[in-house]
Amino acid sequence: MLALTVDIFLLVFLIASAVGILFTHQLFAMAMLFGLYSLLVASLFILLDAPDVAFTEAAVGTGIATVLMLATLAATKESKEKPRKKLSKSALTISIFTGALLLYGTTGLPKFGDPEAPIHTQMADRFIQQGQAETGVPNLVTAVLASYRGFDTLGEVTVVFTAGVGVLLLLRRRYKPKIRRNADAG
């Protein structure tokens, strides 16, 4: 019960910082809020028994994503968002509709942390009981990541590599491109 209370407390904080990201017009403040948000997500992962994921989120979200956001702000020389109209009705309708559909979907899910849920009785049993015997690695996350799902991870690494190549192709040129000269005049 206590763990659940802490989970919910952190989640409320998370939603509050997400709303803060939504409503702030200062983009630098938004980047800082985003770092805070990632740190909260990482602590939530610890509570969900996922230290590997928490590690990654702490280093990626708080470190690299925030620095990349700041670098983009510096490169585009933007610090303020243009003031816009208060509420976008169509976006709100779509969000509420999607949310309602997802909420309806959760009614069919087993309870949070239920050990009898189908997800824990099919594949997980085999990983937990035979994982160490078959791979010799006590950390099951590493065992599944590197051995059982090696193909999957190879694909993910390829995606990371491809994204890096894409960024390099987009930003490598030294001279400033002049695609639309009439943009200033028009």
């Binding site: 590997d52 990654t56 979200g61 997800i119 824990h120 997980a124 994982g131 996350v141 994204a163």
Partner: peptide, 29 residues
């Protein structure tokens, strides 16, 4: 706890930051 969702999401986080970096690069351009 079940290791499978953790494995899938661990890779998703790293891929996520790489793809958003691609988005930021497009914004700069």
């Amino acid at each position: 706890s079940n290791p499978l969702p953790q494995v899938l999401m661990l890779t998703a986080i790293v891929v996520g930051v790489a793809t958003s970096a691609l988005g930021f690069a497009l914004i700069v351009r």
